[in-house]
Amino acid sequence: MTKNLLKNPCGEGNMESWEVTENGGDSWHVEDMPGASGHAFHDAAVTKYFATSYALCLKKQVVDLLAEGFPADYLDAQPPVTVEDWYCGRSDSGFLYELTVSLLDDNEKILQRFRPDEVAVDAEKDDCSWTKVTHKFSGYGPGLRFISFEHGGQDTKGWVGWFGVRVTGSSVKVQA
């Protein structure tokens, strides 16, 4: 079984292992599932999530694949890389969500990037329950050494507190 290379993907360790790249509003916050005006998650083992505030909040991890034990020749053979993220919102506030995952070479030059369109959800019109985003990289060329995973967002009402997008269950997996 391929392991998740992201550390602390569900907030059990608060913000440990994550680099905050945008710390808007009241910054990032870790809450217990399902949270105020929240939604149940499909996996009972996931008990926490990261919540964003009224201004843009982004956090990222850069995975060093050589340090994780992948040999350079194996990475140069371009094994499939699968990424996954889960997001939702409160039932009383809209939100914006974004995700950027980049495959990087040893100089951290981008080999391939996955950046879906920003998601805008209105709690009065849209389903704010947990939604999965997944992507499988292939054909990215030799030289893969790092994977950068960055995600986050904000609320659309400008409310003080943590009314923005919620994220959890993030993963980065290299086929072993």
Results as ranks from 00 to 15, higher is better:
Met1Ala: 08
Met1Phe: 06
Met1Pro: 00
Lys3Ile: 11
Asn4Gly: 13
Leu6Asn: 05
Asn8Tyr: 12
Asn8Thr: 07
Cys10Val: 06
Cys10Asn: 12
Gly11Gln: 02
Gly13Arg: 06
Glu16Arg: 10
Ser17Pro: 00
Glu19Met: 09
Val20Lys: 07
Val20Gly: 02
Asn23Glu: 13
Asn23Cys: 06
Gly24Cys: 07
Gly25Pro: 03
Asp26Glu: 07
Asp26Cys: 05
Trp28Phe: 03
Glu31Ser: 14
Met33Glu: 10
Met33Gln: 11
Pro34Thr: 10
Pro34Met: 14
Gly35Gln: 13
Gly35Asp: 02
Ala36Pro: 00
Ala40Thr: 10
Ala40His: 08
Ala40Gly: 09
His42Gln: 15
Ala45Cys: 10
Val46Met: 13
Val46Glu: 14
Thr47Trp: 04
Lys48Phe: 07
Lys48Cys: 04
Tyr49Cys: 00
Ala51Trp: 02
Ala55Gly: 10
Ala55Arg: 14
Leu58Met: 04
Lys60Asp: 06
Lys60Leu: 09
Leu65Gln: 11
Leu65Ile: 09
Leu66Ala: 11
Ala67His: 09
Gly69Arg: 05
Gly69Asp: 02
Phe70Leu: 10
Tyr74Met: 12
Asp76Met: 10
Asp76Leu: 10
Asp76Pro: 05
Gln78Phe: 08
Gln78Leu: 03
Pro79Arg: 14
Pro79Phe: 15
Pro79Ile: 05
Pro79Leu: 12
Pro79Gln: 13
Pro79Thr: 12
Pro80Met: 14
Asp85Gly: 08
Asp85Glu: 08
Trp86Tyr: 15
Tyr87Glu: 12
Arg90Ala: 04
Arg90Glu: 02
Arg90Lys: 12
Ser91Asn: 11
Asp92Thr: 02
Ser93Val: 03
Gly94Thr: 00
Leu99Ala: 04
Leu99Arg: 14
Thr100Phe: 07
Val101Lys: 11
Val101Tyr: 13
Leu103Asn: 09
Asp105Thr: 11
Glu108Met: 15
Ile110Met: 14
Leu111Asn: 14
Leu111Met: 12
Gln112Trp: 02
Phe114Met: 04
Ala120Ser: 15
Ala123Asn: 04
Glu124Lys: 02
Asp126Gly: 03
Asp126Tyr: 02
Asp127Ser: 05
Cys128Asn: 07
Ser129Val: 01
Ser129Tyr: 00
Trp130Ser: 05
Lys132Met: 14
Lys132Ser: 04
Val133Thr: 03
Thr134Met: 14
Lys136Asn: 11
Lys136Arg: 15
Lys136Gln: 15
Ser138Met: 09
Gly141Glu: 07
Gly143Leu: 04
Leu144Lys: 04
Arg145Tyr: 12
Phe149Ser: 01
Phe149Glu: 03
Gly153Met: 03
Thr156Phe: 00
Lys157Asn: 03
Gly158Ile: 00
Trp159Gly: 00
Trp159Gln: 01
Trp159Tyr: 01
Trp159His: 01
Gly161Ala: 01
Val167Leu: 07
Ser171Ala: 15
Lys173Asn: 03
Val174Asn: 07
Val174Gln: 06
Gln175Thr: 03
Gln175His: 05
Gln175Val: 00
Ala176Ser: 07
Ala176Glu: 06
